[in-house]
Simulated assay, not measured.
Amino acid sequence: MIDDESKYFSLSGDIPIGGPSTWHVTDWDQRRMISVTMDGEQDDESIATEHLSRHSSQLPSHIYRIYISHSGEIISTYTDTKKDQTQCVHYPFLHELVLPEGVQTIQRDELEELDRLGPDADLVAYPAWSKGPAKKVVFKYYFLWQYTQMSWKEMNLWMRLPRHSNIVPFDRVVVDELEGRVIGFTNDYVPGGSLEENKSRVFKLRWLRQLIQVVDDLNLRYGIAHQDIAPRNLLVDESIDSIMLFDFNFAARINNTSHDEGESYCEDRNDIKGVIFTTYEVITRDDSLRRKPHEEQNINDL
C-alpha cells in the first residue's frame, strides 16, 4: 500500500480570478484522477490533496469531480464524463520496440498484483516456468502522458545494460492482452526494503566499495549516469550480501546534454556527488542537505 504522503499528486489546476479554484489530483493507489473544486483562489494544491485524502476511499469510480466546502465537506459530486480530466495515453506496439537478445515479454493478465509499492510500481507475481513458487517481480508502468517519455527511455536503457552483480536485473517487457501494446516492464524483486526504508541494517564498508564499483562501471565502461544515487534507490540482496542499484528513470548517456525529458545529462546530478551524499546520509541519518535542489547541493557543506 502506498503511504499517505506519496498517495496524491497534482500536475495541473484552474485558478480563475475570484475563484472557484479546481485542482486535478491523481490518486496513485486507485490509479484515477479526481478534480477538487474549492471557493476562492486556492493556489496551493496541497489543500486540494488534503481534502481529497479524507474522501477518496468512499468515492465511487464514476465520480470525476467534487466540490468542497471551507470546512472540507463535500458539497456536490459530478458524474458527467466531461468532468473527467484523465487523458488517453499512447502505448506503442511491440513491433516498434527492438528487444535485445534474451529479453522476453509477458502479458499483463498473467501478472497477479500483490501490493502497491509506490506511484506506478506494483509488486506482482507470475507462474515460474519450472515447478516451484511464482516469481515475484516489480511491475513499473505509467498511466499519465507526462511520464510516457521517461518510462519509455528508462525501459530501453535498463534492458540494454549488461548484467551486473550490483544492479537489480531487468526482467521482462509487459504487453497488454488486447493488442500487444507495450505498457511497462518488470524488474527482479529484492525483499528487505531500500536503505531509506530499512534503517535497521548496519551499513557495511563492503557495500560502499560495491556502490563505488557499480558507479564506476556505469560511468566509465557504459557511459551512463544514473543521476539519482540515493538511499531510496539502493537495496541489499542479503542472499549474496550485496548492494543493488535500481530505478533508472533519471539515467542518461553522459555525452548527451540535450533537454529531452529523462535523457539529458546534468552535471548537478553527477553520480560521484550522489555516492558521497548517500554515504553521509546513511551514516548520519541526516537528509537535510539532500532535500535541497540538486544545483544547491554542495559537497563542501559536509
Rank of each mutant, 00 (worst) to 15 (best):
Y8K: 05
I15K: 03
P16V: 08
G18V: 08
D27P: 00
R32S: 14
S35C: 07
S46K: 11
H51V: 11
L52G: 08
P60T: 04
I63D: 09
Y64V: 02
Y67N: 15
I68K: 10
I74T: 06
D80V: 11
K82M: 11
K83Y: 15
Q85P: 10
H90K: 12
V98T: 14
G102S: 15
I106S: 14
D115N: 14
L117E: 00
G118K: 13
P119A: 04
A121W: 05
D122I: 08
V124R: 07
Y126N: 06
K131E: 11
V138W: 01
V138T: 02
F139I: 07
W145R: 15
Q146T: 13
T148L: 05
L157Q: 02
L157K: 01
M159W: 11
R163M: 04
R163E: 07
V168T: 03
P169G: 06
R172N: 13
V174K: 05
L178H: 15
G180T: 10
G180N: 06
P191T: 08
L195Q: 08
L195S: 05
E196K: 04
E197A: 09
K204N: 04
I212H: 07
I212K: 04
L220A: 01
L220I: 03
L220T: 00
H226D: 02
I229T: 03
R232N: 04
V236D: 02
S239M: 04
M244N: 01
F248W: 09
R253I: 02
H259R: 10
D260C: 11
S264Y: 10
E267I: 10
D271K: 01
T278S: 09
E281A: 12
T284S: 14
L289C: 00
P293H: 00
E295S: 06
Q297M: 12
